[in-house]
Write a protein that binds this DNA or RNA. Structure first.
Lengths: 356, 356
DNA sequence: TTCCCACATGGGATCGATGCCATATGGCGT
DNA sequence: ACGCCATATGGCATCGATCCCATGTGGGAA
């Protein structure tokens, strides 16, 4: 509290402050200075106080690389996501950061843009920096395998690559999808489209599975033509949705498998002036800000994304300091939030949403 | 390719692979192995090939801490933002990450939640890890001073703390606000409210300044009662907006100084069934997804946030590898995007938006 | 008095990559 | 025959914190 000026005082300050300099300043050895500042072993209280004072006065900040080199692990935690511009991943990153920071570690962030080669490069960087652990939303097996092979603790988030030896925290896509589609079926819809952009990861696959399961449970036959799979990173999903609706003008409801698809569907329905839910109901998997702000609000499967980030980071940290039990997968339950975009289908059979 | 198996092969792999082991494997020295892999100095081509093969075969990944310890700087770049859950900062982070990754560095992400003490802790961590440079949206002077004092290159983003010796990339808040409010004035509005949540940083301050400048330019008198300042991190901004509208039922347009305020204003206008723009026009500073999705679309000042992240990272990297010129501030121009939420005020004088 | 132990401090090896410097060889010019 | 330089390789100090071990001191018990 008293004299502790802001270290550096804005001056040139070329010389880095090391333990050595603290020791010289006080007239003791590095060993003792180290013990004093670390709080281990014996140091006379008076000397310890002088060392701490000198450290504060000179603005000493220990060098993490030196510590890491000796101790075999930096405090850094890697986080690999697929698209930070997507609110989903941003929320996830925020949740992770919060827990990691609370535990006194830092997050190293890498965005692989859904590209496995970039993911592998990120994983290599994590190994190189001796990251204490890594959290990732896998885009393939390779990155996870590389990390696990190097003995780095890994927790997968949102999806699983299937690599053995790593924990995972995921959201139950199948039951969320089943509930959402079940809701539409219960309202009386019989021609429900599903729009996905990937079925290579277990998220997309399981949402599709849930869609089918709901149909089976309701005894409603499935039609392959009602499944619109745009493939990863489509150029202009809205246009694809438009073409699909032209080809299938009889659909009365759409289930969008993620927030990107939901936006495309919503925009296209608005563009062609199709009343929601009058002519066409819709449900989104993943609930973003805009979905509760638009008129009518979108019925959506809310995923506890931020919490998923918290939990995953928590699990990783437990694994890092000592947990050697079996790898486990924790599953979070999503929640269907009913809003205005879903209603019973129009009774008039002629009212379809095809192009004018 | 040929034999290059996935390193580690999933087995236990206890022993870390170091340069030493590569050297032993090939029957040469660390020095030579280092030169071979780094590409500096003399190494016989045949020997170099054998060393590279051994490195690949054993899955050698150089230890960054050792390199950092020797070289005085890690390749890490710190990024300090105020709230990752806010799309604005998420976009910013995405832009930064992209440029940083392209330059072969990594981003260390810290979210200070707008709290200066946390920002200082983050800054200390950056110094400790010998970050090559730091990007931050300042929440005070202290973090920047600490970093600059330790000789770490700093680029401030979105706001400036006023600390000398660091670059900055910002968006011209004042002119953006002037344009937005000028647009409302040109439409004939004379009682335009402005809603801000901070005037302590230069963003909020300059947006308010732009609001005033537009009024002066149009010769419209300012009324203090039309300025709603909620202060940082208000509990329930929507309620505050409601109280404000009750107290000032004669406003015909609202200028929201950022995306959080815009959401509160929008929600409240919708809640009380006030037609937009029929009874009340509105403009947002900052343009998010939902603003173009709602009906009618929100007129907004679009900020090139992602690009700001790119540019800031670019500037920092230039500064890191050698740029020793004077600190500079680059200013990006925002752009007013006209959508449906702004129109001429209702001619009927009695039509106000007070509580029912 | 002697021994032991708690207390206290310093010496120095260690982590792994880097890069300077010493050493060594062979070819070529004078 | 001598020297020089390009080529090639290894030895070793270095970066800074940590921690084991050696050393040293004083007090209390036997």
């Amino acid at each position: 509290m008293s004299g502790g000026k802001a270290p550096g005082g804005g001056r040139g300050r070329r010389a880095r402050v090391t333990l050595r300099q603290i020791a010289d300043e006080v007239g003791t050895s590095q060993s003792t200075a180290s013990r004093a500042l670390a709080g281990h072993g014996y140091v006379a209280p008076e000397l310890k106080a002088r060392i701490e004072e000198a450290a504060a006065r000179l603005g000493y900040v220990p060098d993490i690389s030196a510590r890491t080199l000796k101790g075999h692990s930096s405090g850094l935690i890697g986080l690999l996501v697929s698209d930070l511009r997507n609110q989903f991943y941003a929320q996830l990153a925020a949740g992770v950061e919060q827990t990691v920071a609370a535990a006194g570690h830092q997050v190293v962030l890498v965005d692989d843009h859904g590209d496995e080669a970039e993911a592998v490069r990120g994983a290599k960087a994590f190994v190189a920096m001796r990251a204490a652990g890594v959290l990732l939303a896998p885009v393939g097996r390779e990155a996870t395998e590389l990390l696990v092979g190097h003995g780095t603790p890994v927790v997968e988030v949102d999806r699983r690559s299937g690599v053995r030896g790593c924990d995972a925290v995921i959201i139950d896509s199948e039951s969320g999808a089943r509930e959402a589609v079940g809701h539409l079926l219960a309202l009386g819809h019989r021609r429900i489209a599903v729009v996905v952009d990937e079925t290579v990861w277990d998220t997309g696959r399981n949402r599709l599975k849930g869609y089918r399961a709901a149909h089976r449970a309701a005894g409603v036959p499935l039609a392959r033509r009602l499944v619109l799979d745009l493939g990863l990173r489509p150029d202009d999903p809205r246009r694809d949705v438009a073409a699909f609706l032209d080809a299938n003008p009889d659909v009365t409801a759409v289930f969008a498998a993620n927030n990107v698809m939901a936006e495309a569907v919503w925009q296209e329905l608005k563009r062609r002036g199709a009343a929601v839910p009058g002519r066409c109901s819709m449900v989104s998997f993943d609930d973003l800000t805009w979905m509760r702000v638009v008129e009518p609000g979108l019925t959506a499967v809310r995923q506890p994304v931020y919490e998923m980030g918290n939990r995953a980071a928590q699990l990783l940290i437990e694994r890092i300091d000592g947990g050697h039990g079996r790898a486990e997968t924790r599953t979070l339950r999503p929640e269907l939030v009913l809003r205005g975009s879903t209603a019973a289908p129009a009774s008039a059979p002629g009212a379809d949403i095809g192009a004018s």
